[in-house]
Design a protein around this nucleic acid. Sequence first.
DNA 1: ATCGTTTATCGTAAATAAACGATATAAGGA
DNA 2: TCCTTATATCGTTTATTTACGATAAACGAT
Lengths: 103, 103
Amino acid sequence: MPQLLHEEDNPPSDDSNIIFFSRICKALSHPARIKIIKHLKSIDQCICGRIVDMLPLAQSTVSQHLKCLKEAGLIKGAVEGQRICYCLNNDVLERFKKMVGSL
Amino acid sequence: MPQLLHEEDNPPSDDSNIIFFSRICKALSHPARIKIIKHLKSIDQCICGRIVDMLPLAQSTVSQHLKCLKEAGLIKGAVEGQRICYCLNNDVLERFKKMVGSL
DNA sequence: ATCGTTTATCGTAAATAAACGATATAAGGA
DNA sequence: TCCTTATATCGTTTATTTACGATAAACGAT
């Protein structure tokens, strides 16, 4: 019987781990984005507008940073009526921490 | 008696911690540089030329990546006659790991 | 003194990132 | 329906990154 290939069956290769890791690092390579992560950590979740208020940057710039974090998988955004509520994606954060630990 | 100000006396501000952290992340935001770090971790120290051999990149490009890691403080290079011997800077690496832990 | 080896730096081209204002979109309230 | 609010996206400018080949600098060996 031929073996079925499911993504979950194959542990990520060393190389794809490194790619994952470098992507997270890139997402965290800007002070504004680190501040966003720390803020979300401290208050659990946050409306986009509060994040804009927190940072000395234009709304469009903050939106760009949020997109960057979202694309890296570090945060998730949930629509709440008119607003977007952001929170950390702890799975990704934990995977990242583990990999840093093994540095 | 006026208090003398030594750098070491002032714990780094939140902000300068964030700057430090973002710099390290930027240094680790490229797969080649992560490979260099992992390699140095696994063999403790390494002549520049071996690192060049390890990576599918031109010598000048690798030299640039090494410079980037050195400027971030992650590695140190020691002249050994004609060659340069690179090794990790564990102090910086440990400080980074601690900060990741507190994410 | 010259030659080969090793590494760093320079110059440059192409790609990506960061910032902004302007504009689009979507939801809620009048 | 129209207006306001909240957020995302577009278009643009400027700066930075990545990669390379060519060249320079330092050293050891001949």
